[in-house]
Simulated assay, not measured.
Amino acid sequence: MYLEKFSVSGKLAVITGAGRGIGLAIADALGEAGARLAITDIDSARAEQAAAGLREKGYQVDSYTLDVTQPDVVNAISKEMVERYGRVDILVNNAGISICEKAENMSDSDWCRVIDVNLNGVFWCCRAFGKAMLEAGGGTVVNVGSMSGFIVNRPQEQSQYNASKAAVHHLTRSLAAEWAGRGVRVNAVAPTYIATEMTAYVNDSPEMHQYWVGGTPMQRMGRPEEVASVVLFLASEASSLMTGSIVLADGGYVCW
């Protein structure tokens, strides 16, 4: 009874930014749990390379090139997927970027770029795929937020990133409230620092390493598969009573 609730067999899962890192781990988790995968990335070669690796594991996978900051493209791909597969059951908004810069020195373009990818991109995808889910009578959205939506990180300055993730958390709650009565659940995971190629630079900075790892009660960074496990839970019927939840996966970081 309980283990089968974690199955997403026969469902179509769309994952943005799935060419590597956390997004690829999420695709792997959902594929292992039985989902058909539509993985997207702004880099078409990276998306197809990731898809090829997942196909080797026996998963059904298609890859798409998607820049989440382009609402017309998001709308077109959503329509294409619904026409091709019949419906979209799971959407994971993982695509995101970070630029570290002091607020007083931050350029307009850097501020707008982070907000455009991390917040606007999440909304464009929620709007397009969520509308399709509502029309089909149900679906599940999982947004990848961050513990940075709860805290101010140290020692790096990243006010635009923190603001974008806090906004994603509240967007998650807002959409959850709007759509709960119509069969669409919307939740988010808020990870700590995750060990990927994008964060490997921390190993060359003793000060940053002390804040990142030394500031974590578990005394380590997270792993992509640890975030993917939470996403699988939120995407599956195991979390059927949850909507509007922001699930921290932070090694206890915000406790301090």
Rank of each mutant, 00 (worst) to 15 (best):
F6D: 07
V14R: 10
T16Y: 09
G17S: 06
R20C: 08
G21A: 11
I22C: 04
G23K: 12
A25F: 05
I26D: 07
A29W: 11
G31H: 10
G34H: 12
R36M: 13
I39D: 03
A45I: 12
A45V: 15
R46L: 14
R46F: 00
A47R: 13
A47T: 10
G53S: 13
R55C: 08
R55D: 06
D72N: 10
N75H: 06
M81L: 15
E83M: 02
G86W: 02
G86I: 01
D89V: 00
L91A: 04
S98V: 15
I99E: 12
E101F: 06
S107T: 15
S109L: 12
V114N: 01
F123D: 00
W124N: 15
C125L: 06
G130Y: 01
L134N: 07
G139D: 06
G139A: 04
T140A: 07
E157A: 15
E157S: 15
A167R: 02
L171S: 01
R173Y: 08
S174D: 05
E178M: 02
V184L: 02
R185Q: 06
R185L: 05
V189E: 09
A190I: 05
T192S: 15
Y193W: 14
M198H: 07
A200G: 00
M221P: 06
M221G: 03
V230K: 04
A235P: 07
A235I: 04
E237T: 06
T243N: 07
S245W: 01
V247G: 01
A249E: 03
C255F: 10
